[in-house]
Amino acid sequence: DGETSPTTSMAELDHLVQVISKSHLETCQYLREELQQMSWQNFLQDEVESYQSKPREVMWQLCAVKITEAIQYVVEFAKRIDGFMDLCQNDQIVLLKAGSLEVVFVRMCRVFDSQNNTVYFDGKFAGPEVFKALGCDDLITSVFDFAKSMCSLHLSEDELALFSAFILLSADRTWLQEKLQVEKLQQKTQLALQHLLQKNQREDGVLNKLRFKVSALRSLCSRHTEKLSAFRAVYPDIVRTHFPPLYKELFG
């Protein structure tokens, strides 16, 4: 808005930061304090082996359930973002269909232990070897590498919240009907993120590093879709009858 004075603009950005951070904290699934109480407990060797010896379809189903749970929190996050619910229903669905898993990957850095290369999963911290039965070692490695590199940015909860909103409001998703509306929301979110990074005295490079994450996220999600297609080709009935309906809606 060209007529907004810089002062009002700053206040508006501060307000946006506040609202989006609050939405993030209300819907983040795990509070950092809760995770600390779990004392970063890792799976024992026999527990790791038990996951590894599960049939491929059982492990896929378990992961689909966990992803779906995490996505439900992202949907709640989206609903609380200023302006999201004012978009047409088609665009709300398009943005969540394309962006919800990306936000799950972004949020993963909150439950990731960089030192041990483990992620909180099914009650304890799991290394990549826990997911061996899925038969997607390359994708799992990439997801862990992504979480590690997100962690290395040491984003605050506020910064993570704004970046998640920025990802969700991507105006270049296919099938958007009111692209301009989404563009405006995304630009505003980006300004708020820039404003926050400056306020937090982060070095200039952080925003550029985050821009690179956008393409990394898209690649992770398209590879997830490819792996699911390959799995479905072998186990169509398992997906049809045992996978969470929301997961099938989003990725089917």
Binding site: K79, Q89, I93, L246, E249
Partner: peptide, 17 residues
Amino acid sequence: LKEKHKILHQLLQNSTS
């Protein structure tokens, strides 16, 4: 799209808790 995403649509319709 709404027809193909009934659960997501329902989640969006539910009031925020």
